[in-house]
Design a protein around this nucleic acid. Sequence first.
DNA 1: GTCCAGGATTCAG
DNA 2: CTGAATCATGGA
Length: 305
Amino acid sequence: MAVGWSDWYPLGLAQEVPAATLAEQLDGGQAFRWRRDEAGGWQGVFGATVAAVRVGDAGLEGRVRGPADVGLAALRAYLDADGAQGRLVADLPWRSDPVLAGALQLHPGLRILRQPPRDALIGFLCSSNKRILQIREMVARLATELGAELGAGFHALPEWSALAAADDATLKRCALGYRAAFLRGTARQLAARPDWAEAFAALPTPALLTELRALPGVGPKVAACVALFGFGRLESFPVDTWVVQALGEAYGLRGWPADRLESFGRIHFGPAAGLAQQFLFAAARAGQLPVTPATRPTPRARARR
DNA sequence: GTCCAGGATTCAG
DNA sequence: CTGAATCATGGA
């Protein structure tokens, strides 16, 4: 049955978000499935929910395809509308950390999206050595090539069984590069255990990270992202190239290996370290992090070759 | 043409 | 065990 859009409803966020924060949250590298619509709002898919959001006069508003009650409840949970993360942000060490305080001020209201586990795993399996723009394109092609049709041209991300059964030509059209083998390998393992998401969700975070890293194409960074974005483990602290740069320059930790930076982040930022990480990531990408003068000159890279 | 991207894996030492 | 090379693809 073709089902159209619901009416627009106020989402009643515990903390409202400015348009710039909304853009960073939906399109800043957490999820890869949101696009701007003609009116300047956003349309996207998470799980089997097709949703749209916009900044209205009375705060953030949303609509969904299909039954409004079910879809809007899913959308509110996805956006942390009840404000659980707001209380965690208040407990971050921003009072004693001016770098963090600046990053919080740059994107007020920024939150970790509560994505379905499969969405996060597929997205970050595509993420290695790729820019966010290209990850979004790969994920979009995976959805249209192999995902369930959700109406009006929207598609869910593919089930593991569909991904495992995909032929080479289909994966080639998704422009995955060497990541195609990772996706197929992980899909084959997880297609064989339909309860994987529930089983993983029941694990404490260290064991969850170990399980994730046993999958093809999942190393420390991708595992940390999937734990954070797909399983709501807000203490998980992904260390990517931007966080390396941010901690190196603004915290004077230049040259530290990734695993040590991860330990630093979890200890320094505490139980919501992943939330702090997202603010620092956004600030670094916006070029808005302070730079420590002592470690500023770095013409070392040019000396080789 | 060169370099790099929300890295992971494999190989050399 | 650590460090380097390799992987496929596209944009700057």
